[in-house]
């Protein structure tokens, strides 16, 4: 720790607690864009989208791929509830590329809203996962 003020971050899925750590900064993909959180943030309850969670614990960055869920910030504790959280090392590129190809071949459903179109969601999900694996993580 660098002596900066920290807050607690936990990421839980139905199967296990994926991450428990103290952090100085965290950013997560909300349904309407990226949220950044630092120590002492006012209570927040928000819905998550698909994207990358970044947790800076003062020494290194932790990245996790998040597939929807909820974030709760209360009493200096950030809890990310999601049905899927994967570390970049757990993502199988070949599998994701396969899913992407599948999704791209599906016919368009013509929904007006991006989130309503299952196909676009699948494509987005795959693309973000591919991006996560490409990130330079030490």
């Amino acid at each position: 720790m660098t002596g900066r003020e920290t807050f607690h971050v936990s990421v839980v899925t139905p199967e296990q607690a994926v991450l428990e750590t103290d952090a100085v900064f965290a950013s997560f993909p909300a349904h309407d864009g990226e949220y950044g959180v630092m120590q002492g943030r006012a209570p927040l309850l928000c819905q998550l989208g698909i994207g990358v969670l970044r947790v800076d614990d003062g020494e290194k960055q932790n990245y996790l791929f998040i597939d929807q869920g909820f974030a709760q910030m209360v009493d200096n504790k950030l809890t990310i509830l999601t049905e899927q959280a994967r570390k970049p090392s757990e993502i199988e590129r070949a599998e994701v590329e396969e899913a992407l190809r599948h999704a791209q071949e599906e016919p368009l459903q013509g929904a007006e809203h991006m989130w309503a179109d299952e196909r676009l969601v699948k494509i987005r999900r795959a693309k973000i996962q591919l991006k996560v694996t490409e990130m330079d993580i030490d």
Binding site: A30, H31, D32, A42, P43, L44, L45, C46, Q47, G69, F70, V74, L81, E83
Partner: peptide
Amino acid sequence: KEYEFSPEPELLLDRLLPA
């Protein structure tokens, strides 16, 4: 708790109950 909700509580609940 005085939460800041995003989106509205009703919409959040809509997602939370199926989960």
